[in-house]
Design a binder for these strands. Sequence first.
DNA 1: CTGAAAGCGCTTACAG
DNA 2: CTGAAAGCGCTTACAG
Lengths: 334, 334
Amino acid sequence: MARLAGVSSATVSIVLSGRTDTTIRISPETRARVVQAAESLGFMPNPAAQMLAQGRSRLIALFYFGDTFPYEREHQFYLSLLGIEREASRQDYNVLLITRGQSAEKRSIYAAGGNMLRLADGAILMGPLESPDELARLVEDGYPFIYIGRRQVPGYEIDWVVSDYIQAGYEGARHVLGLGHRRLGFVWNDSRTEEVRDRQRGIERAAAEVAGAELVAMPQGILTDAGQMERALRESGISALLCAGQASVRASLTRLDELGVRVPADLSVVALSFDEGRQWPWPALRPTHVRHPESLVGERAVQALIARLDGTVEGPQHWRIPCEFVIGNSTAPR
Amino acid sequence: MARLAGVSSATVSIVLSGRTDTTIRISPETRARVVQAAESLGFMPNPAAQMLAQGRSRLIALFYFGDTFPYEREHQFYLSLLGIEREASRQDYNVLLITRGQSAEKRSIYAAGGNMLRLADGAILMGPLESPDELARLVEDGYPFIYIGRRQVPGYEIDWVVSDYIQAGYEGARHVLGLGHRRLGFVWNDSRTEEVRDRQRGIERAAAEVAGAELVAMPQGILTDAGQMERALRESGISALLCAGQASVRASLTRLDELGVRVPADLSVVALSFDEGRQWPWPALRPTHVRHPESLVGERAVQALIARLDGTVEGPQHWRIPCEFVIGNSTAPR
DNA sequence: CTGAAAGCGCTTACAG
DNA sequence: CTGAAAGCGCTTACAG
């Protein structure tokens, strides 16, 4: 310890932590002596001991539900992570990635090593949630967390931050409605997550505002089978197709290519999520799409968590981060 | 504590940690009683206390040198991170992202909160290293770490894991040499990192094996200025251009487009690093390129670190992970 | 086979 | 203005 080189013990703690709020004042000489001793010895407080004594770690845990990252989500995850990392850095927090004891089959917070969450002051949770049970337990334990993605836990109000998928659906639908389309289709590739539901909700809202507008249900099979796509187009009579994300817009365009359906001449297509950085197989087609602010979502999640930790907020925090609508050439007047 | 529900105290620790290696044996009844008590109370050991007592955390710290991620490196970083995360999960480690106290100007391990490294059992370091001083200190302190990227610290031998950039340069050069090219150019966009040097070394090695082959120095200006590119091509007389990475191959092709130089008819171009997932502005051109195994590098780094922690290895560990050479249509016989 | 004690290295009231 | 004590919640030898 530096106490050998200096003279005190608790003094070291106070000096090195730089606390001035305390009633205790320390002479500049002592302070200097301690600092110098610590420096010459290369002394650094043991963080585990600090955490134990203080009961705080300045750590934010990050937990991803779901086994591995499908590529489409991968990028979203990465951008969110970047935002989380950046904001954590600003706020002087470190980020703890919870990866331990996670088998491919079940991703569980309370699996082996799950108590690692407790090392952190709070957590940011992401990814497809199978069952809300673990969240319920977390809430009951009084553990602070934010979900990236709108999640519901029956009987509780949890905090969440999400890209505004309702807005995405709404603006996508408004756009094609403005172009004169009335019968709109909607497809998604993922399972029917809250994020998909929200897009649909947005579409329905826009449709409700325009006379004669209608959201027509499309079978999932159209993404994988050109025959089904053909039949669905014929039977539904849609003239615009709204795709939930990267995967569904690609699958749709591939099927449409196979059928010789021209975009946008025969059918307008909108991507309600789109990663502009990714390889795009149709060079001439710049899809009309929605750009989601994933890294802002990450930043906001950190801010929300810290607000919760500091107790500067009460009641549930629900943030929808606005997205940006980009008009390309995959949509045309009816 | 579960000691209220159970009967013991240290027994709880032994039972819950599942240790059987100790000389101490505990009756199955006691064991069951403890487990049940812990379960009913929802008891989970405090990880900070465990770390302090055990002196181990099963945490791997991850530190990225360099202020923010340029997009080109971004993807590499992400893939490495994915590999690290996956292998850490397998090995039952969590990952600690060191982000705290990092200003844009200086990224320093020993900056505020730098002792957080000590929370982890060891670290994986990545990114452009300004000065090796901090690494030297780390070595002297006996702190175990692996660098992703070949780094030299004068006077010390440090562990590193890296994609085989020498092989990349070598295979790229062999390929165009095999096509009859003799005068080869090499450009890079980044600062002259070890990764760039290694590519060049590989090219030189290949050139040394073929009579008349020569690596011709190219000015950096060719990436930003078509005039300089034109002059350099004329004066150097190269017929093949090896580009270090994504950014330099894009910049080169853009300049060549401006000059009306046809690829590969007038000039063969090889990308010694390439991200196939990214948007590519030349649909007809599938570049001959090298695919780097970033996520394998991440996995290997974790393995190397754990080997170091377990003491199952002695002497420096230096791993070059093989990359894959992909022939496209940006190269043609001379 | 089990319990009581010491110790991990800090921080935080609390006396001097 | 500074020092000695207790405590954070575990684990690990060490007695019983």
